[in-house]
Every structure is written in structure tokens, then in C-alpha cells.
């Protein structure tokens, strides 16, 4: 039963609508339950408009304006929302070719994205342009395994960030894919790629023990899974200790729900990715009780049609 049906049903039972709608939040507060809703996109690829109505597979799907409407709606319903992107914001439509990412970053800022990480295609206009785009964005780029110190991107991104919601601390770090062979080197210049797994272990340990985070999220553009030994989200998820959620990209994987893997501590790590082009908005809800212990998670992938 969805919420709308529930309301209809109970309203029909003769109960005042106003009284009812106010009940859940009060109860949740009383019981000390906290809910954090993570909304996410990946591989938007400059799909500002919905896919054109040309008979192709994704016609009419996606579009920034429709996504914004859905996100706004969720924000009115949920107290604690984080909106994240896992990279490859750029490249794929003439909007990028002619405006070099300006519109993408302006819109994402207006939509109040909380953070993003870099995808390989985000270097496509060159690192100097990426540096300008990072200035346009009102949200931070989180990247833990690219060393930009010898580039114009120096100090334009952060290694991690902690968001606080009503006592819950959410720590986020970011992992980028190896650029060599994927991006012409004149575009990423002196960016130094560092081992993603070692970086992940270091970041999650710091976020957990020093920063006392209750929830640790990895924003990744490594790719979901490979047949070869190439490092992927599955590699990270199974070889870390306390990363709770990996929001991935790059492989354009359409997952209908997060893949659950066992980490080194035999605890669950969830890995999610929602296709590409803004066709879907991913959502993972984390509920915490008074002991601030995660009690269960809910996840879904919306198709924006």
C-alpha cells in the first residue's frame, strides 16, 4: 500500500486527515527514530532535456526539470535528504559541446545537490575548464584518490565531507577511475591517480574512528563490476570494513535495488547505480533508532518518464 492509498483508506475510515498526517513524524521523533534519505544520480551525460521522442528505447525519459520536480517533492516529505552524483555529469549532448558544462553545474547547484564526485568524462573539456566548473558549482566535489596539487584543480575539491542530521553524522568520500588510457592525458594533465582501495580503507577508517560517523558513503566512478580484475565497486564493497553504501557510476548499470555484499567484517555494504542520462533517480533511505544504530534500509529506483 502506498502512502496515498493509506491516506485515502484511513480518511474513508472517518479519521481527520490533518491529525493523521502529523502522526508519523511525531511518533518517529518520540521513538527517537531518524530517517536519512539519500537521493542520487550518475552518468547524467549532459542530458538536460528528456531523451528525444524518436522511437528510441529511452524516449521521453529523464530531464533535469522533471528530476528537480521529483526531488523537490521528496524534500517536502522528508526531513533529512542528501542529493549526490557519482560523476560523468558532462559529455553527451550539444549542451556540453557548446556551453562546456556551464548549464549542467548551474542547474545542479539550483537543485541543491549536496556533493558530487568526478567521472572520466568530466575532464573532457580539460582540467582548466573543470576547475572553472568547480567554481560555478555551489556544492563540493568530493574526490579522495585524485591528487590535483600540481594542476589548476588544486584546492577545488575535498577528500571527504561530513553532513550532520539531527545527531546523525554522515561521512562521504569519493573514488575516481584511472584516467590513463581512458582520457587523453592533455586533458587531465598532472592529476595523480591513487589506489582506490587503499584510499577507501584510509578514508573510511578516519570517518569512522576519528570523525565518529554513523553512516559512511562512498561516491564512486570506478564502475559496478568487471569480468577482469579491474577494480570496481564490488571490489571496494567486499574489501572495506565500514563503508555502508557505495553510490556508483561509469558502467551505466541499471540496478533496480542496491546489491548487497559482505564486507571484511561480514557486514552488509550496499552498492547502487541507476543507469545513466538521468533516466532514474536512486533513493536509499536509512533509518536509525535512538541508539543511533542502523535498523534497516529501504531503496528504490524511480523512472522519470
Amino acid at each position: 500500500m502506498n502512502r496515498r492509498d493509506f491516506i485515502k483508506y484511513t480518511y474513508a475510515s472517518g479519521i481527520g486527515l490533518a491529525a493523521l498526517t502529523s502522526v508519523p513524524l511525531q511518533l518517529i521523533a518520540k521513538q527517537g527514530v531518524r530517517k536519512i534519505s539519500i537521493l542520487h544520480t550518475n552518468d547524467l551525460h549532459s542530458r538536460i532535456d528528456p531523451f528525444p521522442m524518436d522511437g528510441s528505447k529511452y524516449q521521453g525519459l529523464g530531464g533535469f526539470a522533471k528530476r528537480a520536480s521529483l526531488i523537490n517533492k521528496i524534500r517536502t516529505e522528508e526531513e533529512h535528504v542528501l542529493l549526490l552524483d557519482a560523476g560523468d555529469i558532462l559529455q553527451g549532448t550539444p549542451y556540453f559541446n557548446f556551453f562546456q558544462g556551464e548549464l549542467e553545474l548551474k542547474l545542479m547547484s539550483e537543485m541543491k545537490y549536496d556533493a558530487a564526485t568526478f567521472g572520466n568524462h568530466d575532464f573532457d573539456a580539460g582540467i582548466d575548464r573543470l576547475s572553472q566548473l568547480a567554481d560555478i558549482a555551489t556544492f563540493p566535489f568530493i574526490s579522495s584518490n585524485y591528487d590535483f596539487s600540481s594542476t589548476s584543480m588544486d584546492n577545488k575539491s575535498i577528500n571527504n565531507k561530513i553532513f550532520k542530521f539531527d545527531g546523525i553524522r554522515v561521512g562521504i568520500y569519493g573514488l575516481g577511475i584511472e584516467l590513463d588510457g581512458l582520457v587523453p592525458d592533455n586533458l587531465y594533465r598532472n592529476t595523480v591517480y591513487m589506489d582506490p582501495l587503499r584510499t577507501a580503507l584510509k578514508e573510511e577508517e578516519m570517518l569512522k574512528t576519528q570523525m565518529k560517523c554513523d553512516l559512511i558513503i562512498c561516491l564512486s566512478h570506478l564502475g559496478f563490476e568487471y569480468e577482469s580484475h579491474k577494480i570496481s565497486d564490488i571490489t571496494i564493497g567486499t574489501n572495506t570494513n565500514c563503508t555502508d553504501l557505495i553510490i556508483g557510476g561509469h558502467t551505466h548499470s541499471f540496478l533496480s535495488e542496491p546489491r548487497i555484499v559482505q564486507n571484511l567484517q561480514r557486514k552488509n555494504c550496499r552498492i547502487f547505480q541507476v543507469g545513466w542520462g538521468g533516466i532514474n533517480l536512486g533513493r536509499v533511505d536509512f533509518f536509525f533508532n535512538a541508539e543511533k544504530k542502523k535498523i534497516f534500509t529501504l531503496a528504490s529506483s524511480f523512472t522519470i518518464s
Partner: peptide, 30 residues
């Protein structure tokens, strides 16, 4: 509590095509 678990899922299915006017206006000149 149980009912709220379903809430998020149903939102997009019921109202999928609505555009945010402000974002749409920002896109138009481009």
C-alpha cells in the same frame, strides 16, 4: 512505520512527468 517504507517508491510512479518551472525556465535560453 511499515507504511512509510513504501512511501518513497510510490511518489515517482504516481507523478512522474511534472516539471519544475524554475529549472525549466533556466534551461530555455540555452
Amino acid at each position: 512505520f511499515a507504511l512509510q517504507q513504501v512511501e518513497g517508491e510510490s511518489i515517482a510512479i504516481i507523478h512522474p512527468g511534472e516539471e519544475d518551472n524554475h529549472i525549466a525556465e533556466m534551461i530555455k535560453p540555452y
